[in-house]
Computed example of a mutant assay.
Amino acid sequence: MFYWFLKFLALGPMLRVIFRPWAEGTENVPTEGPAILACNHLSYSDWLFMPLVLPRRITFVAKAEYFETPGVKGWFQKKFFSGSGQVPIDRTSGSAAAGAIATQLRLLSEGEVCGIFPEGTRSHDGRLYRGRTGVARLALEAKVPVIPVAVINTEVIAPPGKVFGKLARPGVRFGTPLDFSRYEGLQDDRFILRAITDEIMYEIMHLSGQEYEDLYAQDAKKREREQQRAEQRARAQAESDEVWEEIRPL
């Protein structure tokens, strides 16, 4: 009930009036029954705008800490995250990844629609990165369709590292549902999981128009940081050499 209050009586109308989000392919999302929405990840606002254009509740898994903060602040935080379609990760499964899958399997078995960002983290440069295979395992174990989704312009509204960027009109494209029942029983085959994930990412790439990078987003961020450090060291060395050239005896 709190979710619908948040969406229709509080946050939803405000976001619709200010940003006027548009949507394509909403008919591809089933009106009932379980499904997985696999979306690109450009901004922390993606989980707000993607569900906003659909009548159904879209559930995401989130860190358990968001629901366990004590005091008044923790109460409001818990209500906000639970009300906006997020549930805590099951911590009894040994790892965050296993806990996320266990939680989503439970939700799908209850007929829910689960939202997932296969890249695992936000893109720092607007490119689409290699997907994690959890989405494929989830689809095979739950035996549900995967609907590729692309958010557009959300990185303009909330760029990486900033709370707010520029006012822009975000969009959401929903692709044709992907059926992977032909791989039933092969959820432990890593090659099958990679093939399924790559197919999902290929569809997201076409919907979003992003440049694809066959590299995990976290690895790309790490590589960029290393390059920046190398450039800083090179500049420092060049400045040191210039100083030495000025002061060394003739």
Rank of each mutant, 00 (worst) to 15 (best):
A158S: 13
G25T: 08
G12F: 03
G115C: 06
L138T: 05
K162L: 12
G99V: 11
A23C: 12
A230G: 02
P177H: 04
G74Q: 09
G126D: 04
Q86D: 06
D90I: 09
E119R: 12
Y216G: 10
Q210R: 15
A238N: 02
T154H: 02
R173H: 13
A38E: 05
R190N: 14
L54K: 07
G33K: 05
V61S: 12
C39D: 01
T197V: 11
R173D: 07
V151M: 13
R190M: 13
E68Y: 03
F164S: 06
F174K: 01
Q232K: 10
I89C: 02
E213K: 13
Y183W: 08
A168I: 11
G25P: 01
D125A: 15
T121H: 10
K63Y: 10
E184G: 02
L140I: 03
A23N: 05
I36L: 02
M205Q: 15
T133C: 08
Q86H: 14
R56D: 07
W47R: 05
R173K: 15
E141S: 04
A62D: 09
P145I: 04
I192V: 15
F2G: 04
N153I: 11
S240Y: 10
E231R: 09
F164Q: 05
D90C: 11
T197Y: 03
I18W: 05
E226W: 03
T197W: 05
T26G: 06
L6G: 00
I116N: 06
A96R: 14
E246T: 07
R132F: 12
A195F: 08
M1Y: 13
Y44S: 05
E155C: 14
T69G: 06
S93P: 05
M1K: 15
S123C: 11
P148F: 05
M1N: 12
R130C: 07
P145Y: 02
C39G: 04
V135F: 00
R132W: 08
G126S: 14
E141D: 04
D179V: 00
K63Q: 12
Y216Q: 12
Q86A: 14
V151A: 11
I147H: 01
Q218T: 15
G161I: 09
L54D: 08
A10L: 15
R182L: 03
I152H: 07
A150S: 08
V156R: 15
R137E: 04
A234E: 13
G25E: 02
L108C: 04
Y202L: 12
R127E: 15
L167K: 11
M14R: 07
E68P: 00
A195W: 02
E110Y: 02
S123Q: 11
Y129R: 00
R57F: 05
W4M: 02
K162F: 09
S208F: 08
G209Q: 14
V151K: 05
I18N: 01
I204G: 08
I200M: 09
Q228T: 07
A217F: 12
G165F: 03
R20M: 11
L167S: 08
F81E: 03
P160V: 06
R169C: 10
L215G: 09
R130M: 14
V113I: 14
G131N: 08
L52T: 08
A195Y: 03
L186C: 01
